[in-house]
Nucleic acid binder design. Sequence first.
DNA 1: TATTGTTATACTCTATAACTATA
DNA 2: TATAGTTATAGAGTATAACAATA
Lengths: 158, 158
Amino acid sequence: MDATLVRETAGDHVDLGELRDSLGFLMRLAQLQVFENYFAALGPYDMRPGEFSVLVVISRNPGIRQGVLANRLMIKRAHITKMVRGLEDQGLVARRIPDEDRRVVELTLTKKGNAFVAERIDVLTTFDRAVPEGMTRKERDQLVHLLHKFLGLTEASA
Amino acid sequence: MDATLVRETAGDHVDLGELRDSLGFLMRLAQLQVFENYFAALGPYDMRPGEFSVLVVISRNPGIRQGVLANRLMIKRAHITKMVRGLEDQGLVARRIPDEDRRVVELTLTKKGNAFVAERIDVLTTFDRAVPEGMTRKERDQLVHLLHKFLGLTEASA
DNA sequence: TATTGTTATACTCTATAACTATA
DNA sequence: TATAGTTATAGAGTATAACAATA
């Protein structure tokens, strides 16, 4: 228990005060934490979280409208346009303007896009199912459950 | 149940697939949600979440070293420098370089900084204690508890 | 040599508003 | 008139690396 050890454990007690009970503050920290882990584990796979989530949702909802996608992912319209254009440039996503309503854009994955997601989805789910250090599996599942409630997501079908 | 209503409820069912169980994804959405609420409620009070959290932690830990503060808030050193300089320019924070170790910077709130925090802390805690729509108070507290665990925060004294 | 903070640079993300085309 | 998407612009946030001062 020498000075070096004390320093390395970064054992400086910091009183967070009112922030300890702030959902917003805690979620911000938690997200930074989980993203740090994410990049450490998945960085080499060339999947940025935002873009990859777009690809996953399109793969699960072929033909989804760009605006619906943006709403669900809480991405602004101006931003989703740039993301989708970028993914289109990479040959991962196809845009289609239907005759019924020529204002909207319907999105699907290309063959290449499907392959891209298929190659990486297992790595992601393995990462996501890992139980965070210091938590039990039950607590981890409970956390997911409460986040669903917080977000107003209906529970999964069985 | 006409077309207008359906559209307004944005009831487009989107299958989130593997993302439903992704802590990272859920936390990202949750944080966007809570920040949206935050700005809606506290925007007029001139408190950006990042800067205000810095002020609160300094107020609770007078003389805290800049690096310790950055670690606890998961802010990069280069970034905390800019933030603290900005807060100093606003007259809210004072920097002090102690003789014992002239590499470090110790932070305190100025009189103005203390007043700034004191004027706003009640609005923040009121906001933070609100129970999110669709959740019970117990669930909200449980969520906070699980986030503490996830972040490795020791439980509050009593 | 290692640590703390600073500076400079660039890149990502996001916000806003004006614009188009379609309905 | 309202909606979906686009474009342009600016700003905030963040990452990186090189640097100076101090230990």
